[in-house]
């Protein structure tokens, strides 16, 4: 793999994303809402053990859960399918560049721009907390940023898997939005429904939660921000007692990395090995 070609594609993707009006709108919305969250979260004193940076981060988690997976999965979904539909992909491939260089460059280019928007939102909110003389541990806040970045990687990876299988951008967007709904909106309901219907034990519920990267992010974020893990409920208590607070965090962190790597790796194989042709 030629790193110069990877960098070229990465730069092109990042440039295109930063010029994309939807991406600009998303970044502005996310940043504005992050500031709004900051405003509300700094109005009172300590709530449920959170204060200063911790409370702002806890409030931002819900925002991240809605926005980041949506933009990541959709941007990933159209990344390759749109080029395929436009005909720019075969044209690019007629030049001395390999599919693996295109794939890696695209993924990194888009990921960096999403990370940029996350950093902007968290950065503005963090700056606000600092200006207001915010208290609390900044490490939890930084870990939440890292987890949000990882969540973006997970959903971008899922989006890429959708993209390599789609010949049209509209189809990729449809599937991506469905997956977003499935993981974000229906995820909680699904776990609750399955738990009640199948009379699952705590251990099974915990395993079920691990199958959803958004749930994993939620649990991990709460865990890094709160010294009181009992707010995670019986499943959280079970997990912390079984693996220890640090152990659960490492487990969740590893699962998020797997969620980022497995769909991406499979998408890579499909794009570069199984689907050799680009008409």
């Amino acid at each position: 793999m030629d790193t110069k070609n990877v960098f070229l594609i990465m730069r092109k993707e990042a440039g295109e994303s930063l010029r994309n009006r939807w991406f600009i709108l998303y970044t502005l919305c996310f940043s504005a809402l992050a500031l709004l969250v900051l405003l509300f979260s700094t109005m009172g004193g300590e709530i449920a053990g959170y204060s200063g940076f911790g409370r702002t981060a806890a409030s931002l988690i819900n925002l991240v859960l809605l926005f980041v997976p949506l933009i990541a999965v959709i941007t990933g979904g159209i990344s390759i399918s749109q080029e395929r539909e436009n005909g720019t992909l075969p044209y690019l491939l007629s030049h001395p560049i390999n599919k693996n260089e295109i794939f890696v460059g695209k993924f990194l280019g888009i990921l960096i721009t999403i990370w940029f928007s996350i950093l902007l939102g968290f950065g503005l909110a963090g700056l606000g907390v600092a200006i207001r003389g915010g208290e609390g541990e900044i490490s939890g806040y930084l870990l939440t940023i890292i987890l949000s970045a990882l969540l973006a990687a997970c959903f971008l990876s899922i989006g890429f898997l959708v993209s390599v299988y789609s010949g049209k951008a509209s189809k990729a967007i449809g599937i991506s939005v469905f997956l977003w709904l499935f993981f974000i909106i229906l995820g909680d309901l699904g776990i609750m429904g399955t738990t009640v219907a199948m009379d699952l034990g705590i251990k099974q519920v915990f395993v079920l939660a691990l199958l959803n990267p958004a749930e994993v992010f939620k649990i991990a974020s709460v865990l890094v921000l709160s010294p009181r893990f009992e707010i995670l409920g019986p499943v959280g208590v079970y997990a912390v007692r079984t693996f220890g607070q640090q152990g659960v965090f490492y487990l969740l962190f590893s699962i998020m990395i797997l969620w980022a790597l497995i769909p991406l790796g499979y998408a890579y194989l499909v794009f570069t090995r199984f689907r050799k042709e680009e008409k």
């Binding site: 092109k12 005909g87 720019t88 044209y91 007629s94 030049h95 001395p96």
Partner: peptide, 15 residues
Amino acid sequence: SKSLIGYVPQDPLFY
């Protein structure tokens, strides 16, 4: 091989 070829398609599609 691709570096030895200059290709002009029927309907050029650029970024």
